[in-house]
Every structure is written in structure tokens, then in C-alpha cells.
Simulated assay, not measured.
Amino acid sequence: MLEHGGRLRRAAHTYDIPLGDWLDLSTGLAPWPWPLPEIPVSAWARLPEPDDGLVDAACAYYRARAALPVAGSQAAIQALPTLRAHARVAVLAPCYAEHALAWRHAGHEVLELDEEQIAAGLDSLDVLVVVNPNNPTGQRLTPARLLDWHGRLERRGGWLVVDEAFMDPTPGLSLAPYSDLPGLVVLRSFGKFFGLAGLRLGFVLATSDLLARLDEHLGPWTVNGPSRHLARQVLADIAAHERQRAALLQAGERLATLLAAHHLPPSGGCALFQLLRRPDAAALHEHLARRAIFTRLFPDLSALRFGLPADECGWQRLDQGLARYRSSS
């Protein structure tokens, strides 16, 4: 299995620091968990039913015509490659590594390409996978660019798969409103924007026939009743979405400013994280970890990804940890 952020228990064991003492910035999640509505006993006691209003709430929130709830977008990432015969697949790299892994495991030919290589070789591909905003680089592609790529792929029966796990703070860049176009698949994560990753909930936005095929493959009851009930309430709270969006955008800018103030300007990022590429990334990661500040190290990129602190105490701890690194280097 690939490495991911959030392995806080392992870090606590490795550095012999109690779990409760850590500032976890490793995951790129909203640091403020959404207030939880009351969950009725029936959500626990009955089997989940697909016509409970969750799909309608998701379609309204994402501005999509059709949606399939799944047990985290990771479930869709692993299942989608099984719906196509052998294909030539490109992944815009670097990005969330599970995409390339899933297509390879399903027996497809997988190329990891940069934007220029994709633009030049698009007409030789059957499937293109893009993470937008990119994780971990924060790179954003415009809807016009992506729709142009989609059109070229779809004319030959190809797919454009767009993972929009970090899109919620910037909905104007989303392809969700176009997800009824044949050959376009949009993946959305529920846990990141709402700070509820433990729910393991995501949505696939695509044409109804493709969603039916994916639903058949995944089988019944992929999302549990309590998660469905909670998500339905959360997705309908429009005023709270605006507050969360504004708070995340402000915090993302604050994080970029803080890093730059310590002569560590980010190379990219979005509202939920900032990426720092440096030759000494591993040393900075180690320095912070020994002070119970957990970041995500990408050794192949020589980069660190910083998530958002949840409160002023966290911001001060990060500020102090960075200052000590600067003074010691």
C-alpha cells in the first residue's frame, strides 16, 4: 500500500511523543470538523436506502445532474479502471499516487506525464486522469483547458477523469456542472472540505449510464446509514458552506504568508495546503516532527506539504518551529 498522510499514531510511536501532543498538518483536511447533527436511531438500525434524498442534496451542492455516493472517492479510484477494456492511460503527474496504481493494477498501460506532454500526445490516449487542484502541487487547470481535452478524448470514445478532492473552496473551477457530458467523470471528496474524513464518503459525477455500471460493480450499501443522514444535512447548509469557504481561503493565504516570512516560500498550494519544495525538505520534516509537528514528506519530490493549523495555538507552534529551524540552519 502507498504512503498517505494522517499516520499520526505511527509518528507518535516513532518519535516517542504522546498522541495528544501533536500538531497534525499532514493530511490537507479542513482543520475544523463540521458540527455534527443528531443522527436518529433508524439510521443505525435500518439498511441504507438509495432514495433517502442524499443524491438530490449532492446534485444541488455540486450543481450536477447525477451523482453516486461512494465510500470515499478512493473507492471510485479503485473501481473505475475495471469498467474499461485495456486502455492507454495518462495521469497528469506528479499527483495523488493511487490513480496510477489503480489503473496499473487493472492491467492498463499507464503513462505519468506533465501538462506539455499530455497536450502533445492526447490523441494517442484512451483515458486521461487529472487531479484539479493538484495534490500535492496545488496546480490548477482552467475548465476551458479541461473541456478542450475532454472533447478530444470523447470523440474517440475516451474518458477524462477529474479528481476534484480539493475543489470545494473554489467551485468556479469545477467541472461538476458539465459532468453529464459523455466521457467525463468527476470525483468529489466529502471529508476534506467538511473536515469529516472518518465518514469515508465521496461522490462520482458522470452520466447516468456510467454511474449505473459503477453502482453495479460496487454493490449495495456502499455508504452506511449514519453517513448518509449526516451528509444530507451538511450538504444542505448553504450559509455554512460560504463561511467554511471563506475561512479556508483566508487560512490558506495565512499559511503561505507564514512560510514565506521564514524564507520558505511555497512552490504551490490551495486553500487546504501549501507545498514547499527544497533540497532540505527531509531535514525540515525531521526537525518539525521532533517538535511534534507532523507534515507530509514527499521524498521523490524533495517536498513538504503543510496542512492548516486548527487554532491560534497551532499557528504559534508552527511559527516557532519554523523560526527554530531557520536559526539552526
Rank of each mutant, 00 (worst) to 15 (best):
R145T: 14
L122S: 13
R104V: 00
P33G: 12
L255C: 01
R243Y: 01
L80S: 09
L147G: 01
S328C: 03
D52P: 04
G219I: 01
L101F: 03
F193A: 03
A106K: 08
E3A: 14
A67Q: 12
A45N: 04
E38M: 11
R84T: 13
L8A: 08
W44M: 06
D215I: 01
A120Q: 15
L276Y: 02
H99N: 08
R65L: 01
L36N: 03
L125R: 07
V161Q: 05
A100E: 06
V162Q: 11
V186M: 11
S327L: 14
A303N: 02
L199G: 02
P33F: 10
H105Y: 02
G20E: 15
A87Q: 07
R277T: 14
F203W: 15
P31S: 14
A310V: 08
Q233N: 09
H263C: 11
P279Y: 00
Q316S: 15
N132H: 08
D311A: 10
A247D: 15
S179A: 15
L297T: 09
L175N: 09
P136F: 06
D209I: 01
H13C: 05
L210K: 02
S208K: 11
G20C: 08
G72M: 02
G183A: 05
T207V: 04
W32P: 02
D52H: 06
P182S: 08
